[in-house]
Simulated assay, not measured.
Amino acid sequence: MKKFLLATAAFAAALAAFGVTAQAADLGARPYYQQPPAYAAPLYNWTGFYIGGHLGGVFAGDNTFGGLALTDSSARFMGGVQAGYDWQLSSSWVIGVEGQYSWVGNHQLNAIFPNGLIYNNNQRGIASLTGRFGYTWGPGLIYVKGGYAYSDNNETLTFGVLPVAFALSDNHSNGWTLGAGAEYMFAPNWSAKVEYQYYDFGDSHFTSPAALVPFGTFHNDEHTVKAGINYRFNLGNWGAPVAARY
C-alpha cells in the first residue's frame, strides 16, 4: 500500500512538472521592447550674421532756441535697413554689433527769429553703429544697445526767400544713442523685433551772423520706435531636437 501511494504521488508530480514546462513553451520567448529616446527641447543658436529692414516713427524732443520755440513735425515716418553679427556666449547670453540707417520723412524744424531770419533743419536720415547685449531663452531675446549716432542734416538760414550765410558751433550730425528691444525667431533663419532707440546730437548755437549769437543754444534729440525683420545666416540647427542616449 505504501509503495502504491508513493508511486501515485511521484506520477502526479511528474504530470505537474510536464504541464508547467509545456505552458512555458507555448508562451515563447519574452519580447524585448526598445525604449524610445528621451525628447529634449529644441536648440536655438543666435550666433551669425543677419540683415534686415524696419519701419517706425520718429518723435522730436521738446526743443527751444534760447527760449524761442522751434516748430517741427514731431511725429514722422521712418524706414530703413540694418545689418549685424551676434555671438551667443552661453545658453542665456548674447552679445553683438549692429549698423543701422533710417530714412526720415517730412521733417522741417524751424526757428523764426524776431529780426525776420528763418532757420530750417531738414533731417533726412539717422544712423547708428552700436554694440548690444542680451538675455535669451531659446527663440526669444531681450537686449540693450548703445553707441555712435549720425544725423543727415540739410540746414538753411533765409531772410524771406534769400539765403543767408551762417555758422554753428556744432553741426549736430554726430552724437550718441541708447536703446532696448526684443527679438523672436519665428521660423528657420527669420526673426522679428521691436525696438526703442534714443538719439542725442548735442547742443548748438550760432556763431554767425552776429544778430543770432545772443539767442543761445538749442538741443537736437530724437525718440524712435521701430518694428523690423531680420534674415539670419548660420542657423542650420534651428529647432533641431536633441535625443538623450542611454
Rank of each mutant, 00 (worst) to 15 (best):
G105M: 10
A167G: 08
R124L: 03
Y148N: 03
Y150A: 10
G116H: 13
A165Q: 03
G138W: 10
N171T: 13
Y119W: 13
S102L: 11
T177I: 01
G160R: 13
G140N: 05
T136Q: 12
W176S: 03
Y101N: 06
S169Q: 04
E155P: 01
T136A: 08
T177M: 08
K145I: 00
S102A: 15
W103Q: 01
G160A: 06
N106G: 13
T156W: 09
F159V: 05
L117K: 10
G96K: 10
T177Y: 06
L168N: 04
G175V: 15
E98T: 15
I95Q: 04
G134N: 12
Q123V: 01
G99Y: 05
G138C: 05
I142G: 07
G125W: 14
G140E: 07
G116A: 03
G99A: 07
G125M: 12
T158V: 11
S173P: 00
V161K: 11
N120Q: 14
N154G: 02
W137Y: 01
V161T: 13
G160T: 12
H107Y: 10
Y148W: 12
L157E: 07
G134L: 08
L109R: 15
I126E: 06
N121V: 14
Q100E: 09
I95A: 07
G175T: 14
N115D: 14
G160P: 01
L168H: 09
S169D: 03
F159E: 09
G105P: 00
Y148F: 11
N174P: 01
T130I: 04
V164N: 01
N154H: 07
G160Q: 10
P163Q: 14
A182N: 13
A180P: 08
G96F: 08
E155K: 15
I118H: 15
T130G: 02
I95N: 04
A165L: 01
F113Q: 11
V94M: 04
Y143M: 03
P139F: 11
V164Y: 00
F159Y: 13
G96E: 02
S169N: 07
L157A: 09
V144R: 02
G181V: 01
L162P: 00
Y119V: 05
V97A: 05
S102P: 03
S173M: 12
A167Y: 08
G140R: 10
A149E: 11
Y150N: 09
N174S: 13
L178G: 10
L141H: 09
A180E: 11
I142A: 14
Y143T: 02
L109G: 11
L162Q: 14
G138H: 11
G138E: 13
L168C: 01
A165K: 04
G179D: 05
T136G: 00
G175H: 14
A111E: 08
G134V: 06
Y150T: 12
K145P: 00
L129A: 12
N154W: 05
W103I: 01
S169R: 06
Y143H: 10
G96Q: 05
A182I: 11
L129M: 06
A127I: 01
D170I: 02
S151H: 04
R132N: 11
I126T: 08
N121F: 07
T130H: 08
L141R: 13
I112A: 14
D170N: 09
F133G: 12
H172V: 11
L129D: 02
